[in-house]
Design a binder for these strands. Structure first.
Lengths: 351, 351
DNA sequence: TTGAAAGCGCTAACAA
DNA sequence: TTGTTAGCGCTTTCAA
């Protein structure tokens, strides 16, 4: 059983353009053009074009990604830069990353995970035009990253963060989201509305939500009822409520985790939601719809943010517009959507 | 203010090895060796070695990742291969991916996202030794992927799935996890224990959990009380319970989403957990600890799975052992951990 | 101990 | 319309 040199695994050597060219009796250049250029703008005789394609097919030719990357100075790779652990799977980022994948895939790009591990010098190594064609920066952003981003010429887009860098920033319109939520609550007849945070948040969403909350309370004539709670433990809110120290009729939570903790603390202490207290949250992600009662929430436009980010990035990659090409930050505020569920209702009539 | 040719952006041309060599009065080869080899096994005079490093430093030399990839036939990139999946699965994958990132990072590797979008031919393009040094396959795996994996020589590891491919598979020991949970429930005095699935699951976890459940019920003398529920809607379980059609004292849910829906349906219908019914789940991920009552759950060893996968992969990349080098699947079963919380308790005494 | 030369496999400017 | 010639920037024999 002489198996002519390949016993079982034919040791699959790569077929190169050279070989296709030789076999076709054409030059590598010609093959390259025939294979890569669209029929219309490839100035080759139809005969040679087809012959090139045919021979390539016949030999099972597959272009070498590495060689192409070197020659074209392009890796068709976009870095997903993030500090937290695997945020690309995290609830809020999931929709963003999924939409990014889809849009980038259509354009022939892949995503490289760039978790900010180890020393900043290592970050610089990968956040570079040599390794990537562009990058997307996700929340949160460590301080030392700013310097690196400022120095590179790599095209980039910053998602869900405010930055002074002169690059596109895709953001959620929290002023409008909060306005919608406040209108909903005010419309139900609430006057004692509190806003609740867990600790400090330098994030723009915290600032904007708070600003609009306070502005709308004032505009509705309830300036004296403004209350921004910032407890380390959500239990405190319910304890105060039960003890009668502070009894709002509605609480807006800065995020879904907080709201879910609060809703369960209410259940535990016998505070009925929404009869005794309405609860609303930001971030319409699992499991806000699966708790009792299902939460009214403002949804981050994750899909739109992902798609727009990809488009902005691809646009400036195509235009060879690198970082620093813009004079100022270019901020895109995307609208949020209020999803009303059972956790908010009209307050009980005042005694 | 004559700024000697660079107004602000010095148009940063890349510094090459050639240039460093010229400036140092040495050859590119020497510089390359001085920079990349460890001092001990780089047979260069200490003087030249230091000179090379010094000049490289001085010129701000950074090796070209693309050129190196071409020359060394290595991209230091690992593909994360996954199909679009139920959102709740991402929570389970998060720990796995995070641990993978850390271990791979230490070894100098990055991760490329390989969502299985578009046509399988496109998948083959990227799941290739030209583009990647290895890949990790995550659950679930589309049928057409099997063929591609079987044909490539790319080193790989399959996570949380059973496959006939002769490659390493990192799995959770569901027999043991279920045993722990069953011992917990039987120890509490439960006899009418049901196991609940949402629809069909070809996944090994469903099979193993069920097998061990049935085996242990039988061994405890409750063979006649075995009940495997597979309702499309979890409400049905609670409806039956309330109507008295079937009243188990404990239910084991195949996943946390199901358990949370169930716990919530119980609250709605007035079934007290755990007094009337104990509920336990698989997958110890958010928010099982944040619901009322917090759920007893079996934790998938995500971190260990991620780390082991990375190690197995790196090992066979180093050994140049590619797919097909093994004769049979190499399955690693990692232990799960039972986390007891408040959703399980002793059943009420029988009337 | 150091360097010359030949790849790695493709693309792109320029000729023919 | 096709082919020639240089790169792309580094690594790696192998010779000096």
């Amino acid at each position: 059983m002489v198996q002519s040199a390949h016993p079982r695994s034919p040791a699959k050597r790569r077929v190169t353009l050279q070989e296709v060219a030789r076999k076709a009796g054409l030059s590598p250049t010609t093959i390259s053009i025939a294979l890569n250029r669209a029929p219309e703008d490839c100035h080759l005789s139809e005969a040679t074009r087809l012959r090139a394609i045919e021979v390539a097919q016949e030999l099972g030719y597959r272009p070498s990604w590495r060689a192409r990357a070197l020659a074209k100075k392009k890796t068709f790779t976009i870095g997903m830069v993030y500090a937290r652990q695997a945020p690309f799977m995290t609830a809020v980022n999931e929709a963003i990353v999924t939409a990014l994948s889809e849009t980038l895939h259509e354009a022939g790009y892949h995503q490289l995970l760039v978790p900010l591990l180890g020393e900043p010098d290592g970050w610089r190594e990968v956040i570079s035009p040599d390794r990537l064609d562009g990058c997307v920066v996700l929340f949160p952003m460590p301080n030392q990253l700013g310097q690196i981003l400022a120095e590179t010429t790599l095209p980039m887009v910053i998602i869900n963060m405010l930055s002074d860098l002169p690059v596109p920033q895709v953001l959620a319109d929290d002023h409008d989201g909060t306005r919608q939520l406040m209108e909903h609550l005010l419309g139900l007849g609430h006057r004692d509305i509190a806003m609740c945070f867990r600790g400090q948040h330098p994030h723009y969403s915290a600032v904007h939500r708070r600003q609009t909350y306070e502005r709308m309370m004032a505009k509705a004539g309830y300036a004296d009822r403004i209350r921004v709670l910032s407890y380390p433990q959500p239990e405190t809110v319910v304890e105060d409520f039960v003890a009668g120290r502070y009894r709002p009729t509605a609480v807006i939570c800065h995020d879904h985790v907080l709201a879910i903790d609060l809703i369960y603390e209410c259940a535990r202490r016998g505070v009925r939601v929404p009869q005794d207290l309405s609860i609303a949250a930001f971030n319409d992600v699992y499991p806000v719809e699966h708790v009792l009662p299902p939460l009214t929430a403002v949804a981050l436009p994750g899909q739109e943010m992902g798609r727009l980010s990809a488009e902005l990035l691809l646009e400036r990659i195509d235009n060879r517009r690198s970082a620093g090409a813009d004079a100022a930050p270019n901020r895109k505020w995307l609208p949020q959507r209020l999803v009303v569920r059972e956790s908010t209702a009209a307050p009980r009539r005042e005694p």
